[in-house]
């Protein structure tokens, strides 16, 4: 798996997204990729259009949910999908750029629309090897 990856974990009605990376920002970026993968294969989304995202929350866990929700808002309002993310964190403030393209039903075969990121199974933590994990369930 290496040190930077994303994966899904099951939830009875919805889907869990998990990002892992050497830094908190990398884990957040991977979690965002996992979220795109709930909708479509991220490899099918060309990173041709950039959108800026800024958010702030009282702690890292709430910040993860805010970050994913900010992306969900951009996906919904712009009818876009994202496949590349660059995030930087300053305390509990996040500044990021997401790259993607407009939804193309033929090309992306989007499976489902995401309604929101939730506090269910929400976890942001660093393990003993210094690797960060960021996860929660998204409502679809």
């Amino acid at each position: 798996m290496g040190g930077v990856y994303w994966e899904h974990f099951p939830h009875q009605a919805d889907m869990g997204v998990r990002g892992v990376g050497p830094t908190l920002a990398a884990a957040f970026e991977q979690a965002a990729l996992a979220m795109t993968a709930v909708v479509t294969d991220p490899a099918s989304v060309a990173p041709v259009m950039a959108v800026g995202v800024d958010c702030e929350a009282p702690d890292d866990e709430l910040l993860l949910v805010d970050w994913l929700n900010a992306l969900i808002l951009e996906m919904a309002a712009r009818h876009m999908l994202f496949s590349r993310f660059e995030a930087s964190l300053h305390g509990h403030r996040l500044h990021a750029t997401a790259w993607g393209e407009a939804v193309d039903v033929e090309k992306h075969q989007p499976a489902v629309e995401i309604k929101g990121a939730t506090y269910t199974e929400l976890k942001v933590e660093k393990d003993e090897t210094g690797r960060w994990l960021a996860q929660c369930v998204v409502d679809v």
Binding site: A57, V65, D66, A76, K115, G116, T118
Partner: peptide
């Protein structure tokens, strides 16, 4: 509705 749910949850 999704956005209202998200914002008020927080």
């Amino acid at each position: 509705g999704h956005q209202i749910g998200t914002e008020f949850l927080k």
